[in-house]
Amino acid sequence: MATTTPAAPATDVPARGPARRRLRQGRAEARAGWAFLLPFGVMFTLVFLVPIVIALRASLFKSVASGGGLYGGGELVESFVGLGNYVDVLTNERFWAGMGRVVLYAAFQIPVMIMLALAIALLLDSLLVRRVGALRLSVFLPYAIPGVVAAMVWLYLYSPEISPFVKLAASLGFDLNFMGSTAILASMANMTTWTYTGYNMLIFLAALQAIPHDIYSAARIDGASSWQIVRHIKVPLVRGASLLAVLLSIIGTVQLFNEPTIMATANSWMGADYTPMMMAYNTMMGESSPSGDGPASAISIVMAIFSGLLAVVYTLLQRKADR
């Protein structure tokens, strides 16, 4: 990088016209700008752009082992199948079943989490609460715990023989089951909510604290109640922050992987394709058929397009609602 640092041109240029000087300066600026962008640019290309191109290409091919094992002895023959992998994905019932679960999951988990985060942020921002620092930290603490580890802890908290909740319910005469085929989605949603509410709460809190306090005083003088201030000033002013929070949540949910993977260690009926991301992983690793780079890439691309569509639709809906 050190080689691309031009000396400052401005000082020693005699008066040869400001236009030429500006041109030279512009070139030097462009060179320096590119030089500072370069290290990230190279890494970004390697980690984001190249994989996208490779995935696009790979999705048009399918590897077929000519003999022996898939990754072992036999030679892999790559054959061009056009959009065949996409057709396989789009006509695969298990893919759509997984997609359905993810959409259902997003449809109730995201609103619950965002509302909870907003409510806590509003409480912490109100004058009702004293120890804001400690509370904020407690709510945010789960975010420091890796999703997989959090999922392991909750899995044990759900496990019938050791769960304090199941025991408590049993002593009250209920039969609580967190792992049933319908309850399990809610059980996983709870894991995600527990981990990410604090993160979203902080986004809201930051947005709330950016609102000048004069507005509240003015509203008070005009006779507004606390509730009216929340309803008509605070909530509308954090909409921008909520858009960001919801978009990141949608993108996160489409890739749902950690929670179901951990859950599947105790519930083998969930299989290798409970969510599309699990399906993509297991397709790549050859534990689900059809397997290999091609089909796995096709699943990834379909999911990326799908999450992009969801994000665009949500943004448009919110814009429309704001008008």
Partner: peptide, 20 residues
Amino acid sequence: VIMAGLLMPVALLTIPLYVV
């Protein structure tokens, strides 16, 4: 391009990244 990367589902990149 970089800001679009911000909204890219990173888990989906992991599969082609493995290939690379």
